[in-house]
Design a protein around this nucleic acid. Sequence first.
DNA 1: GGCAAAGTTTCGGGTTGCCTAAATAATCTG
DNA 2: CAGATTATTTAGGCAACCCGAAACTTTGCC
Lengths: 214, 214
Amino acid sequence: MKPTTPAAEDYLKTIYAHTEWQPEPITPKVLATRLGIAPSSVTEMVKKLAAAGLIAHVPYGPLTLTDEGRLRATAVVRRHRLIETWLVRELGYTWDEVHDEAEVLEHSISDRLLEAISTHLGHPRADPHGDLIPAADGSTARVRAVLLADAPAGHSGTVLRVSDRDPAILRLLADAGIGPGSNVTVVDSATLRLDAGQAHPFSADVAAAVWLTG
Amino acid sequence: MKPTTPAAEDYLKTIYAHTEWQPEPITPKVLATRLGIAPSSVTEMVKKLAAAGLIAHVPYGPLTLTDEGRLRATAVVRRHRLIETWLVRELGYTWDEVHDEAEVLEHSISDRLLEAISTHLGHPRADPHGDLIPAADGSTARVRAVLLADAPAGHSGTVLRVSDRDPAILRLLADAGIGPGSNVTVVDSATLRLDAGQAHPFSADVAAAVWLTG
DNA sequence: GGCAAAGTTTCGGGTTGCCTAAATAATCTG
DNA sequence: CAGATTATTTAGGCAACCCGAAACTTTGCC
Ligand SMILES: [Fe+2]
Ligand SMILES: [Fe+2]
Ligand SMILES: [Fe+2]
Ligand SMILES: [Fe+2]
């Protein structure tokens, strides 16, 4: 089967990522927005990916990965998250600085290097943001999680994951001492209590980026 | 000034590398061969690089770097060699395995990551093959060296550098225990004595890859 | 049901970087 | 120094990705 190009890898990864924490498949419009390109460009690439058997697509319908497509996607995600973990653990990066670097390197490193890094790190299961790292065979654990925005007042849980899409949110949370593993209680729709200690107000943006145990 | 593409970086790097251990500037034909592409492709890219002020070129003449071009080239060489050093020192690669990986990564890592790696390694001055690593400002030390093929019988010296172009040669030398820092004596045009110890026959290919102190 | 808005695709273009084949310039050789 | 060889450039094409504008579906709403 034909090797995937960096551009194709980004399409597959983004299609995959969209269903990682919610069920609905992605549409071309949303995909175009996420990738920062024109919808017409998506149509074109979608045709190629469908022809290559990596995605299923009926005209005007949503985009879903085939088994082969999902395998390719998780391979990219594995690269991305291992690179992020490595940058934080070995090279002094903070969790808000690693995403962009990983975005590039995920398309460049060889399988050999990837596994060397994984071994070097002791085969971590999650990246600095709490995202699970798929295994080399593509298998991924599934975790039940509740978006902070959807958590009722009084809900108590552990922070599982923070989306790394917005570095500013990551810096904000780091300053508050909140990250994966933190035990928190939702005081009200805009306030969080950390470890039965200090209360922190939070914005809607933050609420849409933080995931807690159910 | 316009950022360089991976392809352009490879052109500049290869033009630079050609004059690193010998004076004659490279010709389009040789450059095409080194890059593994057609001569006409070189003509095309050369026009762009000349227009960008990175190389000097008169039709049917040789290719030489401008100051700006040399700066860009040494930046790529710095990346390449730091990556090679990092792979060997931190990730268990042997010196014959690193070149191809570095060939890709040199175009992908950010300045930030490059300097983090350099710091992590304690700012090494040479890569695993003995090639000097240019400083961040582009400055490079110059070393007088003699190609083993040009060394007279009886010549004694230290191995300064082994070309990493042919991994087989690197494996051969590693097996013989010969590398940068080894003290050797040229017995005759096909035999080398290591540290006044064991004698090793060597081929013309090896003789063209090993550089000794003068 | 009918129509406007939103989403998707088609179409014509543009850039980068590569190719082969053919033309042209430079160099070598007898 | 002329013909042959080699190097270089020109010309025409191709694949990967991207774009905007226009056409065409689908959806949402009165
Ligand atoms: Fe990320
Ligand atoms: Fe992440
Ligand atoms: Fe190398
Ligand atoms: Fe090297």
